[in-house]
């Protein structure tokens, strides 16, 4: 676990650096993030581009966007929170774009929609605890 936390610390601190190698991107300024007041909004504006509006994911060339509907990996709220914060494989990290409340909201939303009925709730404090501690220098 220790090395996983360390890894996420590295990823997050690098994600905070202003320069991400986008090369032929539209701009170094990515435009504003819209207000995302609840989990449904986060899902709609950030997640469904890949995981689809029905949470069923999609199949591509021998690869896929995993379904969130009926996905056993959602049993523990920490797992989706970790993936949202740090990314996984081709999925980018959202630990910078989303605050603790928004991460908690979207995790809770996903775990109570698309046929999922988990009753435990992730709190923003739980998300905060998953973030690496940043020194003043890092920030």
């Amino acid at each position: 676990m220790r090395h996983i936390l360390l890894l996420s610390a590295l990823m997050l601190s690098s994600a905070l650096m202003p320069v991400v190698a986008y090369a032929d991107s539209a701009s170094s300024v990515e435009g504003k993030v819209q207000t995302l007041p609840d989990g449904a909004a986060v899902y709609k504006h950030v997640c469904q581009g890949c995981h689809m509006p029905d949470g069923k994911g999609a199949e591509g060339a021998g690869a896929r966007f995993p379904a969130l509907a009926g996905n056993p990996k959602l049993q523990s709220a920490e797992y989706p929170a970790y993936v949202v914060l740090n990314g996984f494989g081709g999925m980018p990290w959202f630990g910078v774009a989303l605050n603790d409340q928004q991460v908690a909201n979207v995790v809770n939303y996903v775990r109570t929609h698309f046929g999922n009925h988990y009753t435990d709730t992730l709190k923003p404090e739980d998300v905060a605890a998953m973030r690496p501690h940043l020194t003043v220098e890092d920030e």
Partner: peptide, 20 residues
């Protein structure tokens, strides 16, 4: 054209961080 919905790339292009 939404690159994250292209079946053969599932995204636009690689996004390296300095750490990675």
């Amino acid at each position: 054209f939404a690159w994250s919905r292209v079946p053969w790339t599932l995204g636009c292009c690689s996004m390296w961080t300095e750490e990675a």
